[in-house]
Design a protein around this nucleic acid. Structure first.
Lengths: 202, 202, 202, 202
DNA sequence: GATGAATGAGTCTTCATTCAT
DNA sequence: AATGAATGAAGACTCATTCAT
């Protein structure tokens, strides 16, 4: 077999990654064996290992690819003009996470939970995730700033805190829906609105 | 004297559970071996197995004990009279989670992440968690109802949604702080307040 | 199973080592699989690994035990009084190596060749062997000194060189007999005598 | 033009063999992978396999080529007229082995140790080596005969034994220097001379 | 009851070799 | 003829669990 083209190589990597996603989601990161992935990919052990040199690398790739795939869907929302109100933004992002799950054929929420747990003991994964979430939170902060410009919320000194609160709601949505399967994006948006204070009282 | 024996039995179970917590937190659920726990507990393999018949049982016990330990700390907050505003309640609960970590000598947040991941493939753990979070959300809903009575928020038809949103913020706090280590309860409370809309928009 | 006695533990170690010796000798160090040794030992994989934590450790133990077993047989020869002539000493040592082989049921010569090869890439083994051969050469030098005292050879400034030459003959005997199977200790002794110069001529 | 093709073929074989030598010497025979050799040779897997059909074949070729390369250097010494004294011959041969190492860019001594070990389980290699060493010993015997003619040693019935003793010293030099790195050809020659008995003793 | 040695199926990974292109 | 991607059978080692003492 002569040299494979770059596209074919990428296709093979994708093929393996999809197999890994499917297995990880079904069995969890550690309960999934390389043999599971190898069988699911339809390739041989050696072939899989020539594309991903270890299980850890495959885990890292699976999680980071999920993360960046999601990012590319969410970024347009964060840069929309005019900027929506926070509750609307929350609803749109949550809905996009749901769509991602449906579109790619595996549940991003479950993979996210697995990734967070794995990040506790995997240095590289932790660093990667850290970078991702910090960047994501920055984007949220900017979007909230533009929402303030649009008059949706009071321009305040605590833009960073608002971004933290909003990020908490987003990842909290992922956890809660993964565990309870009964949270809809609109409910979250309505809930956030309902939590709003009538007047500042603390 | 069966009573002494029972007490001893309980003490042994606690001793083993503490060892398990310490290991799980440090290494993760799967990377922790029974041998790790056995050594950390200072008992023999046979002894540990006579108290917990399998690793899965130990995982279940570790997670549910954490959960109920936390519950007993949080319930007073949820039943406080007069009811605090949502942001205040959020701050108090987040602070309690932080305190729990400090008091029990292991990081509840990390164990929570591990437990959620494990629940994806462990039927019993999933059911247990489901029950816990549903009950917790009910308590949140009641507390929010009393907060509405106290005039902190508009009494609305979406009490359930508000509870979902609040729970999302709480678990989102756990995730975000476990990953980024830069979220304080007060920031979250301020952030929630900052997200309040100037005008209701759809 | 309660705590095993020290003797039993030692016996188990010996049992595993003997199995390893037999396999190594038959197959070579690398071609021998742990499974070979496990089966030959009659124990389980876990049991073998609880006594020797890796194949490398087993190789090290096999080689160093051979070395020290041989040493304990040869030392009396080196300390004999009155000291024999070099050719006689050579013959005795070579004969002892042959006896060791016969007595222990495996061919020390073959294991020696394997060990030397392995020492090329195994740091610890190399260090161990180095120490052994240096010490052995020192003993040879002392024995030659006593042989000079006894009038068997000229006392010279080159005692170290004589020890190097004698050690070369001993290990050379091991190699040659392992490869050709046609060298007897007496032949070596006669050969050394025959090589002796009639008069110093260089 | 088949002649050019043949030359190219020989050049390729040499190129592969050199790569193999370099790897074998650095890593040992078994720890060297075909991939190591393939990469070191700069050729493709298929190309290497078209010249040497298996790793065993490559090992055999590497060892026998070393052996015959050395032979061609040593033979002139063995046929020199007038014949030198045994100690002188020993020194010359040892020095030639050292030179070979320097000249060919890889350590013949190390490869020799590896080859001897491998010969324990490789039938063909064993047979090849056996032939080589028997032939070499015959040449030594003849050279010693001529040395006796020249009056350097007593003509005796044990010419074969003297050859065995001399071969032992030569291979013993290889082992000792490979392990201890502190043996010089002249030391060996002086040492042999120093071992000469003052009086024949039994 | 308690002990901890023993079990052995299962894990990740390697690597000599092949053969489609 | 050459390439190098693919194969898949081993290999070293682990670890939840058991049970003889």
């Amino acid at each position: 077999m002569p040299k494979i083209s770059d596209e074919k190589r990428a296709a093979r990597r994708a093929q393996i990654l999809e197999a890994a996603w499917a297995c990880f989601q079904k069995e969890g990161l550690h309960a999934t064996t390389m043999d599971d992935i190898i069988r699911a990919s339809g390739l041989s052990a050696g072939a899989v290992y020539s594309y991903y040199p270890s299980k850890d690398e495959l885990i890292l790739a699976a999680v980071t690819t999920s993360l960046s795939g999601l990012t590319s869907l969410v970024i347009p929302l964060l840069q929309a003009m005019p900027a929506p109100a926070p509750a609307t933004l929350l609803q749109q992002i949550a809905a996009t996470i749901d769509q991602f799950t449906a579109r790619e054929g595996y549940d991003l929420k479950r993979v996210a939970l697995l990734g967070w747990a794995e990040a506790q003991r995997n240095e590289r994964l932790r660093a990667t995730m850290r970078g991702f979430y910090l960047a994501f939170r920055d984007l949220l902060e900017q979007a909230l700033g533009r929402a303030a410009d649009a008059g949706h919320l009071e321009r305040s000194l605590s833009g960073k805190d608002a971004a933290k609160a909003l990020l908490a709601m987003i990842v909290g949505f992922v956890v809660q829906d993964a565990l309870l399967h009964d949270v809809e994006p609109e409910q979250l948006a309505r809930g956030l609105a309902a939590l709003a204070p009538l007047r500042r009282d603390d």
